[in-house]
């Protein structure tokens, strides 16, 4: 495992040097199409390393626990630092962990390992006889579980990270009576949208104490082709339109239910579907880890063994009683009542 810790330390050292040389990671530079290119190159690199793996000790090493455990330990430690340090945009080194090169590189390294592991397991599933030492009755299920867990984490991390620069978040204040086609993004830049929005009616329902129990906007949309449609946006119930998700964000709190304006938040995240695919893979993998009996070295839990033993004991006991009963019945057929007494005493 020592080698694994040395590799991790080297990656962190390299990260520090890059950070000193070029400053924090500029995520904006990864906006489309650069992120797609980086994604392609990363996948290609993993595939090439996978294909030349034969007889290469180092590549083999990368697919073992001796590499994985130290990588995870470094990731956990850096994330703990992040959890203890207040984070802010443009913060210094660990104050802006998401753009801190050592942190980013450790996660790139983990993704690389995950990609390699997943490929190897896919090829195992496809080409080899499934004889996992602890494979249970359906060893291929074990491969599926592995691929869902490790491949799912790979996809989730990579798509979420590379997709982040393409995500747009826009605030839009809509009014009754006028149509709004523009919003303002997080950098206060004006963004024009592929549809116009007009507030038809603002809805505010209150609890007895006056705090809002529901606020929502009845909206009408106009697309470029003049097509119109209407919809209601509730908190927790965004609607989707032309690649944008539209959220209820705020309203004129001084006017309350009479508010003539509503603030919407519009989010576009073209990589979301890949992240969700990864998330659902992870959920499936977690379920398999729960239900697939082959993960437990025995395949059954301590409790199950105990229960099984008890069941056997009860069965033996019942049989013994039955046998005794039968014997007594045969031997002393004319003493049925006594036998009955005896049976009762036995139980």
């Amino acid at each position: 495992m020592k080698e694994g810790f040395v590799i991790g330390a080297a990656i962190i050292g390299a990260g520090v040097l890059v950070q000193l040389g070029t400053g924090a990671v500029e995520w904006e530079a990864f906006a489309w199409p650069v992120n797609a290119l980086v994604f392609g190159v990363f996948l290609l690199a993993i595939a090439v390393v996978f294909l030349v793996r034969r007889n290469n000790y180092f590549i083999h090493f990368l697919t073992t626990h001796r590499a994985a455990v130290p990588a995870l330990v470094y990731a956990a430690l850096l994330t703990i630092v992040m959890g203890l340090t207040p984070q802010r945009d443009g913060g210094f080194w660990t104050e802006n962990m998401l753009s801190f090169w050592p942190f980013v590189l450790i996660f790139v390294y983990i993704c690389f390992l995950l990609g390699l592991l997943t490929l190897r397991r896919i090829s195992h599933l496809v080409y080899f006889k499934h004889r996992h030492p602890n494979g249970g009755r359906r060893p291929w299920l074990r491969d599926i579980g592995f691929i869902l867990n490790h491949g799912g984490l790979f996809l989730t991390l990579v798509a979420a990270t590379l997709g982040a620069p393409d995500m747009q978040r826009v605030r839009m204040t809509v009014h009754t009576g006028t149509e709004e086609w523009r919003g303002v993004d997080e950098q206060q830049r004006v963004v024009s949208l592929p549809f116009g929005v007009e507030l038809k009616r603002f809805i505010l329902e209150q609890y007895a104490d006056g705090s809002p129990s529901r606020f929502a906007s009845e909206l009408s949309f106009t697309k470029h082709n003049k097509q119109r449609l209407s919809a209601t946006v509730d908190v927790n119930h965004p609607i989707s339109l032309q690649g944008w998700k539209i959220y209820q964000y705020g309203y004129d709190t001084s006017a309350g239910a009479a508010s003539q304006v509503s603030v919407l938040e519009l989010v576009r995240d073209p990589w979301l579907r890949y992240v969700y695919f990864g998330i659902f893979m992870l959920l499936g993998g977690a379920l398999l880890m729960f239900f697939d009996r082959s993960y437990s070295v025995r395949g059954v839990s301590e409790e199950e063994i105990r229960r099984e033993r008890q069941k056997q004991r009860q069965k033996r006991e019942k049989e013994r009683i039955k046998r005794r009963k039968a014997e007594e019945f045969l031997g002393e057929g004319n003493h049925q009542e006594d036998e009955h007494e005896h049976y009762r005493a036995e139980t």
Binding site: V73, A76, I80
Partner: peptide, 25 residues
């Protein structure tokens, strides 16, 4: 669904990730 993004490295989320990593290790 509620805030427009699935992960924002809120401290609770960060510590949930750390805990998860711990048990993975």
């Amino acid at each position: 669904e509620a805030w427009g993004h699935y992960w924002s490295w809120d401290p609770k989320e960060t510590w949930a990730a750390i805990t998860w990593l711990g048990y993975l290790i």
